[in-house]
Design a protein around this nucleic acid. Structure first.
Length: 271
DNA sequence: GTGACCACCTGGCCGC
DNA sequence: TGCGGCCAGGTGGTCA
């Protein structure tokens, strides 16, 4: 399940392969992946566009083209693979981009949850999905004051609030648990009841956890791997998510459901 | 405006 | 062995 560090890893891996490449054709095998615009426009407008850069915003990968941005969200299990055009199209390969070097970049997604948008460059920050995103974890505007304001009317559990991409982008279910563990905060604590000290801890630990995870190449829990099939190593450094015993105090880790998500915490370390 | 719930999907796992 | 049911979870839509 790609979160910000996994997306960053995929983006960097793809960047090494794709800079300067020109898209010569697009094949779509599962139309629902393409959210905007219509299929015909998507296929037509991508042809002869050079890939000039790859960026990331939250969990979105941005393929910067000459006239457009191709946005790709991997959701749960999306990944990119390079294949020869004549290779058989796999059951879970849903979109294929023919490149000018003869290879084909294929979007593979077992559960078909991933989505793509093709936006004109000037529209990028004016419409969904990017105009609805909150701050990047390293944005200097991410402060205690900002979180206080965002959370002031939110009685929802802090676990749920941190998953809200309109406040902070990039945190998913795994790193959410880790950030709250490091901050000694229970997941069910109402977001609007947190102290300034706790909010600062969340900001600091979000940055620490995500930076460490990026450095480790992301987390491999179930099916995530980068475009070259490289598995992340951060799962070896997780404190609570998917664990049975607290690595700090030895207490049993408790698993509950918060907002429908499997949530792990240590009842002794997180008060 | 807020929050709860559901749909989208398929593979893996478990119990029978 | 085979089958049915449940679970995993990021996001958008709907409804109260």
């Amino acid at each position: 399940m790609p979160e910000l560090p996994e997306v960053e890893t995929v983006k960097e891996t793809l960047k090494r392969e794709l800079l300067g490449r020109v898209i010569k054709g697009v094949r779509i095998f599962y139309p629902n992946i393409i959210e905007f615009p219509d299929l015909e426009t998507f296929q037509r407008e991508l042809v002869d566009q050079e890939i000039v850069d790859l960026k990331r915003r939250g969990k979105w990968i941005l393929f910067e083209l000459e006239d457009y941005y191709l946005l790709s969200h991997l959701r749960m299990e999306g990944k990119y693979l390079f294949r020869a055009p004549e290779d058989e199209v796999g059951r879970h390969e849903h979109v294929a981009f023919l490149l000018d070097d003869g290879r084909e970049l294929r979007y593979h997604d077992t559960r078909k949850f991933g989505r793509m948008h093709l936006l004109k460059k000037e529209e990028l920050n004016l419409r969904r999905p990017l105009n609805e995103l909150g701050l990047e974890p390293w944005d200097e505007k991410l402060t205690v004051t900002y979180l206080k304001e965002q959370f002031q009317n939110k009685k929802i559990p802090i676990k749920t609030a941190l998953l809200d991409q309109s406040i902070i982008v990039g945190i998913g279910n795994i790193y959410d648990d880790e950030v709250l563990f490091m901050s000694h905060i229970r997941p069910l604590t109402p977001a609007n009841s947190l102290t300034k000290r706790e909010l600062q801890a969340i900001i600091d630990n979000t940055r620490i956890v995500l930076e460490k995870a990026i450095h480790a190449g992301g987390t491999t829990i179930r099916s995530y791997e980068s475009s070259e099939g490289v598995h992340g190593l951060f799962q070896h450094e997780l404190f609570v998510h998917g664990k049975e015993t607290c690595p700090i105090c030895g207490h049993d880790i408790v698993k509950i459901k918060v907002g429908g998500r499997g949530t792990y915490y240590c009842p002794k370390c997180q008060k």
